[in-house]
Each structure stands twice: as structure tokens, then as C-alpha cells.
Design a protein around this nucleic acid. Structure first.
Lengths: 316, 316
DNA sequence: CAGGCTGATGAGTAATTGCCCATGAGATAG
DNA sequence: CTATCTCATGGGCAATTACTCATCAGCCTG
């Protein structure tokens, strides 16, 4: 542990000398009494461990314009559009950083707030970009269960990681994501602890959710939460996307039946009482984002240029 | 202007693709349809224009330890210790970033605050690291005059730059830094507008000041605010440093006479009612920092490892 | 319109960085 | 005690980046 943390210490120091003080890796090597190669390794360790946070502080005109058009067209309260990286296939790069910045800002206030968090790869990536903070005044509540089909804690449940980083009180949902039957769900939801957590979600001041597509590589299916047959049935019924497990159709309506009557997640908090921010980019998510906007499920959106353009184009 | 801002736009985009999306400059060049060299120039422009903000998110153990020892030894409320860059002669690198982060955090709250700001190279550098913000709820007040001896607005008056960046209401002091006589100072201070500004300073919730040394290269002398003779007289009288123009001795007491009876700055806000943060590093400033601490003029300090070590060592 | 200034551009080149690999120290299991 | 494994290290080299320089377009100035 000592080795490990002192290694990270050195990495942070090397990263600092490199990025803040502008030293070359040669100079760092001399100052830290290591070889040039080791200095390089320390710097790259600092980067890969997420110790180095970069932000670009300039409102790129095109992104701003897209954001304001999206805002007025869909009556949204918060829109962030980040530049696209044409050719990159990542579905998180950029939006994760922007989401982290938003989350950080909301948490940096003194007044206690309740923040509800969904799940998924995008949100996971966003949480990883969060800096360490001291926010014991806030409450972070999970909207979805954290038990995977095999009984383990689901990898993409992000509330633990988040609460750990920002030192907030956390309220996970010790439930499967989708119960095996309606009866099981009802039973689970009757537990006092779960009741309290559900009640807390409903009062969330600000909510961040990913938007999952329901194509052939739907995360819900890939991660084993639903079967291939269920996925097909959802598609058949017109589902285009899923938010914290709830399948929605192109109009943003929550479907009846199929998996939805067994989803153990909290309802998506109302956008009447708080801010509900969707975080998603990429062509696969486009129908889902459009649906969520159409149905008024979200009143905030963090996406990228390409997706924003497409959203504006298709409404014409 | 269009060219200029679209150039910065491109620079921001290039910086984003480089630092956030991890492209090489070759890829960026292709994506932005410019030559590789131009892409390199855009990236470096983004850096030199301060569009790219890097922070290292790891509490380096040694810095933390120094900070907590300084805190308890001098009864301070806020101490930040950043890594040192051994061999660098810069007096701002590192502390400027840390100060900017502190300022940003104070300004990001919703509740209106009054922030008082000194002057000097260190503070100037810190302000340059601030991101653009929207903070019309706050008031930023200058502690010192902004008229240079030649009648121009002094370069190091930082309130304008700052108010511009964060969109706060600003209260500069349209005065010389040091009046030509006690009578002139009294007259100037009687102006209603100045009175109001002085009153505002006294109520500051948080104050950031640099600490100027009074050695042969004292900024006050180099920038022409005081003459060589006055500098010598101050040294003779035991002055070791100066805070917003007020010369102090090794015990942190404000000297009587010499230049001090003509300094047109506000008094340093009381640390009883608010936080007064000194920002300084380096051997030249060491006596000044020690004096400010000894006299209880500040209850917050942002400095670097080496300076922090020296401060702890000399008290033994 | 000539002259001169400013600033952008791409070629060329030196400096810096990233990465692969062989080596060896130290840990661990048998 | 030995075989084996893991992992940090530095050499070497290719890729990438930074910088210098000559050129040229645009733009004031007289």
C-alpha cells in the first residue's frame, strides 16, 4: 500500500511538473532521481489513473449555437454540447467530462441537495472523471438496482464509486435491476429501506441518467439483464430505448408489460420538481434521445455536436 | 474580430481533440483540414491563450503534511501547498493555479459575497488562470489604486481583468497607489465613490493578496511606485515586505511614516470577519510571509513545498 | 502605387516522447 | 534451495512534436 500510494504520489508529482510546470520528461527524471523512461511512465500513469484533468475553457461557437437551438426547440433548462471527434467510436469521450463538470458544480454548493443517478457506461465514465471532493452535506441516491443477474454487484452501478469520491451519503438499491416477477418486485419494494430510498429518489433535486439503446447490442441485453427474446419482444412493441431499465417508445411513453412490469428501478424523477439530465451521444442513442425529448422525460441534455445536429435536423 | 474569434474557436477545437479526445496533431490536421504545422500551432495557441486548464487531482502526501503543520502552527483557516519545481525561477507557477481554483470555488456559490483583491504579479497570474464564469451576484473590490506613477492604469491592477472574466460587479480604486502627500490622500479618500469602495473592502468576506518583497528588486520600486531612496528608508526602518502597498516589519506590524502615511490603499481587511489569503512563494518572499503570519495579518496561505518547508523550519 | 510591416504558411530539422524488448532484482511456490 | 513468476529498469528506436526559417499574402502608410 505504501509503495502503491507513494507511486501514485510520484506520478502526481511527475504529472504536475509535466503539465503545470511545463518540464520535459528529462528534467522531471533528474528532479525525481529516476531514469527518463521511468519519468515517462510516471507521467503516463498519472494520465491513465485519471490524476490529470484537462478542460478546455472556451465556448466553441458552433457548439453554443447548437445548444441554444436545442434548448429553445425542446424547452430544455440545461443543454451542453461538446465538440465531436469525427472518426472516434467512443460513446463517452467528451460527454463524460462535461457531465463530470456538471455534477461537480452541483455538488460544490453548501446547501444540501439530493442527487439521483442512473447507470450505464456513460455515467460510469463520467463518475471516473470526477475529482475527489468533500460533500457530506449531499445525498446521492441510485435509481436502479445494483444486483446483476448472477448475483454479484453490477459493474455499472455507479453510486458506490461516486459516493466514495465525493464523500456523500449514498443510497444504493440492493435489488436486482429486473425482478423475476411482478410479485417479487412488489415484495422487494415493500422493504422499509427500499421504500425510503424510493421516496428519496422522488424528491431528487437533480438527476443524471444515461440513455440505453435497444438495438442488437443493447447494454441491457449484452450485460445479461434481459434475454434475447425479451429484447425482441420490446422491439416488437415499439421500444426504442431504455432509461434506468424502463423501456420507452419513440414518443417517450413508458411501455406497458413485457419487462417493464418487473423493472425494479425507481421511476424517473419528475422534471417538474427538479432537473433531469440525460447524458448520451452517438447515432445508436439518437432515437432514444429523441424519444426522451419528445416524451418530456428529461429537461437537460449533455451530448455532442454530431448528435445535436442530428436532433435539430430531424425535427424539421 | 471574426477571424480572431474563429481562430480561437479552432484553437479550442484543436486543443479539445488533442487533450480530451487524445488525437495526434496529424489526425487533428486532417479533421480540421489544415496542415500538420497549423494544427500544432492551434494546439499551442490554445495552451498559450490559457484555453487549456490542467489540474492534478491527487493530494501529494508531503504537501498535505506541510499544509496541516502550517495550519496548526500559525492557527490558519486555509492552507494550500503545491509541489515545488526545483530549479524553476518562476514566482507564480503552481500557486497561481491553486489560487485560481480557490477563487473559482468561492465564486461558484449562489450566495452573494464580497471578494477583495490586492495586486501584483502573482495575483495577476492567478486571475489569468480563472475560467470564464457568470457571477453577477458577487462583488469584487480592489484594495489598491490602479493609477501608475505615469498616470496610466497600472498594469498589475487585476480587478478589471477579473471582473471581465467572471462578470461580477467590480469596484476599482481610481487612485494612485501612493499619494504624493498625506493631504492628497485625505482629499482623495473623501470622495464619496472612494468612501463607498473603502467601506466595501472593510466588509469583504474573502480577500486574496500577494506579498511583495522589499529587497533590491522590490516590485514597488521596480514598477516605479516608490523611489530608491524611499526603498532604502523603508529597509532602514525594518520593513521586510509590503501587502497592497503597506510596508510591514518582521513582526508583521505596519510601519509608521515613510511611505505608509501616503499609501492610498484600503487597510487589509480584518481576518476576524473574513478569510484573508496570502499568495506567495519563493525565498525572496519568505521574510514577508513569515512577517504576515507573525503579525496575524492573514489567516490563509497558498504557497509551495519549499517555502512551506522553510516556514516550518525557521520557527523551530 | 511603392515600400514596409504583420502575420500566416509549409518545409525542414532538432528535440522530445512513446513503446518494445532484454535484463535483472525480488517475491513466491514447490 | 531452486525454479518460476512478476515487475521495474534502462537501452534503443520509431513516432510525434516543437521550433526555425524563408516565403508570401494582406494591409496600412506615405
Amino acid at each position: 500500500m505504501t509503495t502503491n500510494s507513494s507511486r501514485l504520489d510520484d506520478a502526481a508529482r511527475a504529472g504536475w511538473l509535466y503539465y503545470v510546470a511545463g518540464n520535459t520528461q528529462d528534467q522531471i527524471a533528474r528532479k525525481l532521481n529516476v531514469s527518463r523512461q521511468s519519468a515517462q511512465r510516471l507521467v503516463s500513469l498519472a494520465v491513465s489513473e485519471g490524476l490529470v484533468k484537462v478542460r478546455i475553457d472556451h465556448p466553441i461557437a458552433h457548439c453554443l449555437e447548437l445548444a441554444s437551438r436545442l434548448k429553445s426547440r425542446y424547452g430544455l433548462d440545461l443543454v451542453e454540447v461538446v465538440p465531436s471527434d469525427p472518426g472516434s467510436s467512443s460513446t463517452t469521450v467528451g460527454v463524460a467530462e462535461a457531465a463530470a463538470a456538471q455534477i461537480e458544480q452541483r455538488l460544490s454548493g453548501q446547501d444540501p441537495i439530493i442527487m439521483a443517478i442512473g447507470t450505464g457506461r456513460t455515467l460510469k465514465a463520467a463518475i471516473e472523471k470526477l475529482p475527489s471532493m468533500e460533500c457530506p452535506q449531499h445525498k446521492v441516491v441510485s435509481l436502479t438496482g445494483n444486483i446483476a443477474p448472477d448475483g454479484s454487484a453490477a459493474f455499472y452501478n455507479v453510486v458506490f464509486t461516486m459516493a466514495d469520491k465525493v464523500k456523500s451519503r449514498s443510497f444504493p438499491m440492493p435489488l436486482p435491476v429486473i425482478a423475476s416477477s411482478q410479485e417479487e418486485r412488489a415484495l422487494l419494494h415493500q422493504q422499509p429501506m427500499i421504500q425510503a430510498t424510493l421516496a428519496l429518489s422522488a424528491k431528487a433535486d437533480v438527476t443524471f441518467v444515461g440513455i440505453g439503446d435497444l438495438g442488437p447490442n443493447a447494454p441491457l441485453f449484452v450485460d445479461g439483464f434481459i434475454s434475447r427474446d425479451e429484447l425482441a419482444a420490446l422491439n416488437e412493441a415499439g421500444a426504442v430505448a431504455e432509461i434506468v431499465g424502463w423501456a420507452i417508445d419513440a414518443g417517450g411513453k413508458t411501455l406497458e408489460g413485457i419487462t417493464n412490469d418487473r423493472v425494479a428501478s425507481s421511476p424517473i424523477p419528475s422534471r417538474k420538481s427538479g432537473l433531469v439530465v440525460g447524458i448520451a451521444k452517438g447515432p445508436a442513442k439518437l432515437p432514444g434521445i429523441a424519444a426522451a425529448l419528445a416524451g418530456g422525460l428529461i429537461n437537460g441534455l449533455i451530448t455532442d455536436e454530431e448528435t445535436a445536429s442530428a436532433l435539430i435536423g430531424q425535427g424539421q
